[in-house]
């Protein structure tokens, strides 16, 4: 899991940041579906989408270094998969192996770029409100809102527990560290479960009826 390097840019201000999350969400979906619909080798289409994305990246103010870092993070996996499917691609006899492989890599890169621009200009909470307004089931959105809230709390908790473990055990590595690390996760589960009960009780006490108002 790469560290979330976009966190700082997500709350910046640009015309793209100010745009309604629904517009951005639908725009991203439309663009990715359009790229998906392109043939595997369509240099002009790639060029057009690439220019549009370059314009959007410029508008959003996301540093290219961050884009490259995220793309490289995914590259190994994508390249592995491309190596597996390119030889069997139906269009291979028509274009040749290299063109098909490069074509899939470019298409994937364009889709990834679109998602990075979306992620880099929209705070996740906004995105969820947009999803809710677009008709995603309320329970699911509320679950995701909870997750986003407690994700940070629990990652901090893991950090504290890991620090405490390092303070007590002077060893590193070795087979036994697996059982220690597993115990850490087990302990985290118990703490999370108890925390969920406390949070739920507190919410009931404050009149929670199972829905999060979507009009904020």
């Amino acid at each position: 899991m790469p560290p979330d390097g976009l966190e700082r840019h997500r709350h910046a201000s640009s015309p793209l940041h100010r745009l309604d999350a629904r517009v951005k969400l639908l725009g991203a979906v439309a663009l990715i579906v359009a790229v998906l619909a392109l043939p595997v080798v369509a240099w002009r289409g790639f060029g057009a989408v690439g220019l549009l994305l370059a314009f959007l990246v410029g508008l959003s103010g996301i540093p290219p270094r961050e884009l490259a870092r995220r793309w490289l993070g995914m590259f190994v996996l994508v390249a592995f998969l491309v190596a597996m499917i390119a030889p069997a691609h139906p269009d291979r006899p028509q274009y040749g192996l290299a063109a098909v492989a490069v074509g899939i890599l470019i298409k994937n890169g364009l889709a990834l770029l679109t998602m990075i621009v979306l992620a880099g200009t929209t705070p996740f909470a906004r995105l969820l409100v947009g999803m809710r307004k677009l008709g995603m089931p309320a329970v699911l959105v509320a679950t995701l809102q909870f997750m986003e809230r407690y994700r940070h709390v629990l990652i901090d908790e893991v950090d504290r527990m890991a620090t405490a473990r390092r303070a007590r055990t002077f060893r590193r590595g070795g087979a036994l560290s697996w059982s220690i690390l597993g115990g850490l996760i087990g302990q985290l589960f118990l703490r999370t479960f108890e925390r969920a009960e406390r949070v739920h009780d507190a919410m009931i006490a404050r009149g929670w009826d199972g829905t999060i108002p979507s009009d904020f």
Binding site: M147, R149, L154, L188, T192, H200, I212
Partner: peptide, 25 residues
Amino acid sequence: HGERTTVLMGTMSAFVFAAQMVNFP
């Protein structure tokens, strides 16, 4: 689970996310 669904699923998803931060050599 009724109205408990959201809290339980939300915190448990966050738990899996946090648990994935623990790296096993």
